[in-house]
């Protein structure tokens, strides 16, 4: 395939601004290195144009949304990586320690399972049940937000992940 059209600087600024606002509202932080972060945001726009979803710029997309649900930004691995390495895999999101300069960025190893082990993980079905609950409990696979209601919300109120990224928790 040929290289896709590059997003304009205005498009990059608009998405950067929105992601920054949403991150701060949810208690997350974008990487304060402006040029670096703009490159990542540009990558998200390129991937959205190419694949129809904002696949992680630092991972190879399969062109199948359902197979790549776990790497749509913010990815399923962001929060454990923030806890362990102070940044997500591509370093779009960083911890408070990095933001304030108390900690330096370091390479984050890939947490996503290898291609040959991927399907098994995605197909894993929760079987835990607790009797007597009036509603099922849904868990956002990205940020862990829990809610008890008939169906998951259209969009996670904390991290903005879409409905299909929720799993039944209880």
């Amino acid at each position: 395939m040929t290289a896709p059209r590059m997003p304009t600087e205005d498009e990059v600024s608009a998405l950067h601004e929105r992601l920054h606002r949403e991150a701060e509202e949810g208690g997350y932080h974008l990487n304060p290195d402006r040029a670096f972060t703009r490159d990542l945001v540009r990558g998200l726009l390129v991937n959205t144009a190419r694949y129809g979803y904002a696949s992680c710029p630092c991972r190879l997309a399969s062109r199948s949304r359902s197979k790549d649900l776990d790497i749509i930004c913010p990815c399923d691995y962001r929060d454990p990586d923030l806890t362990e390495y102070d940044a997500c895999y591509c370093a779009l999101y960083v911890s408070g320690a990095i933001l304030t300069g108390k900690q330096q960025l370091r390479p984050v190893p890939e947490r996503r399972p290898s291609p040959d082990q991927r399907q098994a993980v995605i197909r894993e079905v929760r079987t835990t049940t607790i009797g007597g609950l009036a509603y099922p409990v849904w868990r956002c696979r990205v940020c862990g937000y829990l809610c008890a209601r008939k169906d998951p919300p259209e969009v996670c109120p904390v991290c903005k992940a879409t409905k299909e990224r929720f799993e039944r928790f209880i």
């Binding site: 290289a3 670096f36 490159d39 990542l40 710029p57 630092c58 991972r59 190879l60 591509c90 370093a91």
Partner: peptide, 9 residues
């Protein structure tokens, strides 16, 4: 490398 990856760059 990937064309969109900043660490690759």
């Amino acid at each position: 490398a990937l064309s969109t990856c900043v660490w690759c760059k």
